[in-house]
């Protein structure tokens, strides 16, 4: 369990983290969501003891990270944004070194490493040089490193960034399997990624917590705000006026237009009573404006924050 209370971290005049508080419960996967530069990595660095906060406290299973750093750090396994890997060591040498660092005793070491290696599935690269591994394997070695010493909490900073889709799926599976026995904080700037694995989400923006919510609540909140992208063959001005007149449409803004087609971005009010998409379809059919493209838009995180903070 981690209790984070009013964290502030200042760099010069800028506050990278400005009063963040939240709690991570036991055996919970917490998504830590925010756009690039929101302060995710700084917050995680403070939680793991890499940085000290300008003010505020972090308690890991009751141990303050500044006052009892060794006890607190024993509880945490950390995979930073750039995995701390030595390219000139083999995976075996590296994990042995991490065992030394975390004080894993000789007799427990072999068993523990065997378990971790099979869990993160790196046995086939166990004796290879880390520098020669693919990005996905490096990431897994990074996760293995974090698991050494059996910490009860894993903190993973953007574990899937830079991986190809197959690797992302693999890592997600891995995180799901780890979630059974660990509290996990996983950060990302992609909402869908978090939705897959997390029980609860903390969203931060510009160094502040924008929202703390369970995934299902968040979905509900976000579904109240959805957007459609419509491209059709027809006049823009007329189309715009007609669509704005439809019930359920909050606003419509032109995106692209040329002689042959018009593209609109349409915000709809989510009241479930009227399906705006149906009425748009019939409108187009009635006007004989062929639909070239018609799909719903994922809201960007910024929009989510705007939306969340607007309420």
């Amino acid at each position: 369990m981690i209790e984070i209370n009013n964290l502030v971290k200042r760099y010069g005049d800028k506050k990278a983290v400005n009063g963040i508080s939240f709690t991570v419960n036991d055996d919970e996967v917490l998504g830590f969501l925010g756009p690039n530069g929101a302060g995710k990595s700084t917050t995680m660095n403070i939680i793991t003891g890499y940085l000290s906060s300008t003010s505020g406290t972090v308690k890991v299973n009751g141990h303050d990270i500044l006052e009892e750093p060794e006890l607190a750090k024993k509880e945490i396994g950390y995979l930073p944004e750039n995995p701390p890997l030595y390219n000139d060591m083999t995976v075996a040498e590296y994990l042995d070194f991490v065992c030394d660092l975390k004080g894993v005793s000789r007799d427990k070491r072999k068993k523990q490493l065997e378990r971790i290696v099979s869990l993160v599935r790196i046995s086939e690269v166990y004796n290879r040089l880390i520098g020669n591994l693919s990005k996905g394997y490096k990431q897994r070695v990074g996760i293995a490193q974090a698991m050494v010493g059996n910490p009860s909490i894993l903190i993973l900073d953007e574990p899937t960034v830079g991986l190809d889709p197959n690797q992302i799926i693999e890592i997600r599976k891995l995180i799901k399997s780890l979630a059974k026995s660990h509290s996990i904080i996983i950060s990302s700037h992609i909402l869908s990624e978090i939705q897959e694995v997390a029980d609860r989400v903390v969203i931060i923006n510009k160094g502040k917590v924008a929202a703390v919510d369970t995934i299902s609540d968040l979905s509900k909140r976000l579904s109240g705000q959805s957007k459609l992208l419509l491209t059709f063959k027809g006049p823009l001005k007329e189309g715009l006026a007609k669509i704005r007149a439809l019930p359920g449409v909050q606003s419509a803004t032109p995106r692209l237009t040329d002689n042959t087609m018009s593209q609109l971005e349409i915000s709809i009010v989510n009241d479930n009573s009227a399906d705006v998409r149906t009425s748009i379809f019939y409108l187009m059919a009635k006007e004989s404006w062929p639909i070239l493209e018609f799909r719903s838009l994922d809201p960007s995180l910024e929009e989510v924050f705007l939306n969340i903070t607007a309420r």
Partner: peptide, 13 residues
């Protein structure tokens, strides 16, 4: 507020 927040870092320095 800034000054208050800086106390810990100033102390460390």
């Amino acid at each position: 507020e800034n000054m208050h927040n800086d106390v810990r870092a100033e102390k460390m320095k």
